[in-house]
Protein backbone atom coordinates (compact mmCIF):
# COMPACT_ATOMS: atom_id res chain seq x y z
CA UNK A 1 0.00 0.00 0.00
CA UNK A 2 1.54 3.29 -1.05
CA UNK A 3 1.18 6.49 0.89
CA UNK A 4 -1.59 7.81 -1.36
CA UNK A 5 -3.67 4.71 -0.76
CA UNK A 6 -2.90 4.91 2.92
CA UNK A 7 -4.03 8.52 2.98
CA UNK A 8 -7.25 7.59 1.21
CA UNK A 9 -7.85 4.82 3.71
CA UNK A 10 -7.30 7.18 6.63
CA UNK A 11 -9.66 9.72 5.10
CA UNK A 12 -12.33 7.07 4.63
CA UNK A 13 -11.89 5.95 8.22
CA UNK A 14 -12.22 9.52 9.43
CA UNK A 15 -15.50 9.83 7.59
CA UNK A 16 -16.75 6.77 9.45
CA UNK A 17 -16.66 4.32 6.58
CA UNK A 18 -17.03 0.85 8.09
CA UNK A 19 -15.39 -0.94 5.20
CA UNK A 20 -12.35 1.34 5.51
CA UNK A 21 -11.97 0.33 9.13
CA UNK A 22 -12.02 -3.29 8.11
CA UNK A 23 -9.44 -2.64 5.38
CA UNK A 24 -7.25 -0.86 7.89
CA UNK A 25 -7.52 -3.75 10.27
CA UNK A 26 -6.64 -6.27 7.57
CA UNK A 27 -3.67 -4.14 6.58
CA UNK A 28 -2.07 -3.79 10.00
CA UNK A 29 -3.51 -6.50 12.22
CA UNK A 30 -0.73 -9.06 11.66
CA UNK A 31 2.07 -6.64 12.50
CA UNK A 32 0.20 -5.35 15.50
CA UNK A 33 -0.56 -8.85 16.66
CA UNK A 34 3.19 -9.50 16.74
CA UNK A 35 3.62 -6.40 18.88
CA UNK A 36 0.84 -7.51 21.18
CA UNK A 37 2.39 -10.96 21.56
CA UNK A 38 5.55 -9.43 22.98
CA UNK A 39 3.66 -7.51 25.62
CA UNK A 40 1.39 -10.32 26.73
CA UNK A 41 1.70 -13.61 28.47
CA UNK A 42 -0.36 -15.63 26.04
CA UNK A 43 -2.30 -15.53 22.81
CA UNK A 44 -5.69 -14.73 24.37
CA UNK A 45 -4.26 -11.81 26.24
CA UNK A 46 -2.60 -10.60 23.04
CA UNK A 47 -5.89 -10.83 21.18
CA UNK A 48 -7.61 -8.76 23.85
CA UNK A 49 -4.87 -6.19 23.61
CA UNK A 50 -5.14 -6.11 19.84
CA UNK A 51 -8.88 -5.58 20.10
CA UNK A 52 -8.56 -2.82 22.63
CA UNK A 53 -5.79 -1.19 20.63
CA UNK A 54 -7.71 -1.20 17.35
CA UNK A 55 -10.81 0.28 18.98
CA UNK A 56 -8.61 3.13 20.20
CA UNK A 57 -7.16 3.49 16.72
CA UNK A 58 -10.66 3.81 15.29
CA UNK A 59 -11.67 6.28 17.95
CA UNK A 60 -8.60 8.44 17.65
CA UNK A 61 -7.91 8.26 13.94
CA UNK A 62 -9.10 11.83 13.63
CA UNK A 63 -6.13 12.88 15.75
CA UNK A 64 -3.55 11.44 13.37
CA UNK A 65 -1.83 14.46 11.85
CA UNK A 66 0.18 12.65 9.23
CA UNK A 67 3.43 13.30 11.06
CA UNK A 68 5.48 10.13 10.89
CA UNK A 69 4.32 6.82 9.57
CA UNK A 70 0.78 5.65 10.10
CA UNK A 71 2.04 2.21 11.09
CA UNK A 72 4.25 3.78 13.74
CA UNK A 73 1.27 5.72 15.08
CA UNK A 74 -0.83 2.55 15.34
CA UNK A 75 2.05 0.77 17.00
CA UNK A 76 2.39 3.56 19.56
CA UNK A 77 -1.29 3.18 20.39
CA UNK A 78 -0.81 -0.55 20.87
CA UNK A 79 2.17 0.00 23.18
CA UNK A 80 0.31 2.65 25.18
CA UNK A 81 -2.64 0.32 25.49
CA UNK A 82 -0.30 -2.39 26.75
CA UNK A 83 1.16 0.04 29.26
CA UNK A 84 -2.28 1.00 30.46
CA UNK A 85 -3.19 -2.62 30.89
CA UNK A 86 0.05 -3.30 32.69
CA UNK A 87 -0.49 -0.47 35.15
CA UNK A 88 -4.04 -1.60 35.78
CA UNK A 89 -3.19 -5.26 36.41
CA UNK A 90 0.20 -4.76 38.04
CA UNK A 91 -0.66 -6.06 41.49
CA UNK A 92 -2.37 -9.19 40.21
CA UNK A 93 0.43 -9.95 37.83
CA UNK A 94 3.26 -9.39 40.28
CA UNK A 95 1.73 -11.97 42.58
CA UNK A 96 1.24 -14.47 39.78
CA UNK A 97 4.70 -14.39 38.34
CA UNK A 98 8.22 -13.95 39.44
CA UNK A 99 11.15 -16.28 39.43
CA UNK A 100 14.75 -15.51 40.06
CA UNK A 101 16.01 -19.04 39.41
CA UNK A 102 17.18 -18.07 35.96
CA UNK A 103 19.25 -15.24 37.36
CA UNK A 104 21.70 -17.59 39.03
CA UNK A 105 24.95 -18.78 37.48
CA UNK A 106 27.38 -17.58 34.84
CA UNK A 107 26.40 -16.51 31.36
CA UNK A 108 27.93 -17.40 28.02
CA UNK A 109 28.19 -14.64 25.45
CA UNK A 110 25.62 -14.87 22.68
CA UNK A 111 25.99 -12.91 19.48
CA UNK A 112 23.27 -11.35 17.40
CA UNK A 113 24.03 -13.77 14.58
CA UNK A 114 23.64 -16.73 16.92
CA UNK A 115 20.21 -15.63 17.89
CA UNK A 116 19.21 -14.75 14.33
CA UNK A 117 20.42 -18.04 12.89
CA UNK A 118 19.24 -20.40 15.56
CA UNK A 119 16.12 -18.92 17.04
CA UNK A 120 12.72 -18.48 15.47
CA UNK A 121 10.23 -15.65 15.96
CA UNK A 122 7.89 -17.90 17.93
CA UNK A 123 10.66 -19.11 20.22
CA UNK A 124 11.89 -15.64 21.05
CA UNK A 125 8.41 -14.24 21.50
CA UNK A 126 7.58 -17.24 23.66
CA UNK A 127 10.60 -16.49 25.83
CA UNK A 128 9.61 -12.84 26.19
CA UNK A 129 6.09 -13.90 27.10
CA UNK A 130 7.50 -16.10 29.85
CA UNK A 131 9.14 -13.12 31.54
CA UNK A 132 7.42 -11.49 34.46
CA UNK A 133 5.29 -8.54 33.37
CA UNK A 134 7.72 -6.02 34.85
CA UNK A 135 10.73 -7.55 33.09
CA UNK A 136 8.81 -8.02 29.89
CA UNK A 137 7.61 -4.45 29.88
CA UNK A 138 11.01 -2.93 30.51
CA UNK A 139 12.66 -5.24 27.96
CA UNK A 140 10.10 -4.42 25.28
CA UNK A 141 10.18 -0.69 25.89
CA UNK A 142 13.95 -0.53 25.93
CA UNK A 143 14.83 -2.98 23.15
CA UNK A 144 11.97 -2.59 20.71
CA UNK A 145 10.56 0.86 21.39
CA UNK A 146 13.94 2.47 21.96
CA UNK A 147 12.98 4.22 25.17
CA UNK A 148 15.52 5.45 27.71
CA UNK A 149 15.43 4.29 31.31
CA UNK A 150 14.20 7.68 32.50
CA UNK A 151 11.25 7.49 30.16
CA UNK A 152 10.51 3.88 31.06
CA UNK A 153 10.71 4.69 34.76
CA UNK A 154 8.27 7.52 34.29
CA UNK A 155 5.82 5.46 32.27
CA UNK A 156 5.89 2.50 34.63
CA UNK A 157 5.97 4.55 37.80
CA UNK A 158 9.24 3.04 39.05
CA UNK A 159 12.70 4.39 39.70
CA UNK A 160 15.35 4.53 37.02
CA UNK A 161 17.39 2.04 39.04
CA UNK A 162 14.52 -0.41 39.07
CA UNK A 163 14.15 -0.02 35.34
CA UNK A 164 17.82 -0.73 34.78
CA UNK A 165 17.79 -3.65 37.16
CA UNK A 166 14.68 -5.12 35.54
CA UNK A 167 16.22 -4.84 32.10
CA UNK A 168 19.37 -6.51 33.28
CA UNK A 169 17.41 -9.34 34.88
CA UNK A 170 15.27 -9.76 31.80
CA UNK A 171 18.34 -10.06 29.63
CA UNK A 172 19.90 -12.64 31.94
CA UNK A 173 16.75 -14.73 31.99
CA UNK A 174 16.39 -14.60 28.23
CA UNK A 175 20.04 -15.41 27.69
CA UNK A 176 19.80 -18.39 30.00
CA UNK A 177 16.80 -19.69 28.09
CA UNK A 178 18.42 -19.09 24.74
CA UNK A 179 21.48 -20.97 25.95
CA UNK A 180 19.29 -23.86 26.94
CA UNK A 181 17.61 -23.94 23.53
CA UNK A 182 20.93 -23.67 21.73
CA UNK A 183 22.44 -26.34 23.97
CA UNK A 184 19.49 -28.62 23.24
CA UNK A 185 19.93 -28.00 19.55
CA UNK A 186 23.61 -28.70 19.61
Amino acid sequence: MNSAEEEKLIKACRSGDGSAFEALYRRFSAKMMAVCYRYCHDRDEAQDLLQEGFIKVFEQIGKFRGEGSFEGWIRRIMVLTALEKYRKDRRVRESRYGSVADLQGDMQPISSDDIYSQMSFDELVGMIQELTPAYRMVFNLYVFEGMKHEEIAEKLGVSVGTSKSNLSDARRILQRRIEKVMYDLN
Binding site: A30, K31, M33, A34, I110, M119, F121, R171, L174
Partner: peptide
Protein backbone atom coordinates in the same frame (compact mmCIF):
# COMPACT_ATOMS: atom_id res chain seq x y z
CA UNK B 1 31.58 -11.23 28.14
CA UNK B 2 27.91 -10.48 27.73
CA UNK B 3 27.38 -7.90 25.04
CA UNK B 4 24.05 -6.29 25.74
CA UNK B 5 23.80 -4.51 22.42
CA UNK B 6 24.56 -7.69 20.51
CA UNK B 7 21.95 -9.49 22.49
CA UNK B 8 19.27 -6.83 21.93
CA UNK B 9 20.13 -6.60 18.26
CA UNK B 10 19.63 -10.35 17.92
CA UNK B 11 16.10 -10.01 19.26
CA UNK B 12 15.33 -7.07 17.04
CA UNK B 13 16.57 -8.86 13.92
CA UNK B 14 14.36 -11.86 14.56
CA UNK B 15 11.23 -10.20 15.89
CA UNK B 16 11.03 -6.74 14.29
CA UNK B 17 8.94 -6.54 11.18
CA UNK B 18 7.43 -9.95 11.69
CA UNK B 19 3.73 -10.50 11.66
CA UNK B 20 1.43 -12.91 13.40
CA UNK B 21 -1.95 -13.42 11.87
CA UNK B 22 -4.69 -12.87 14.44
CA UNK B 23 -7.50 -15.41 14.62
Amino acid sequence: DFDENEFDEGFRRVIEGQGAEPP
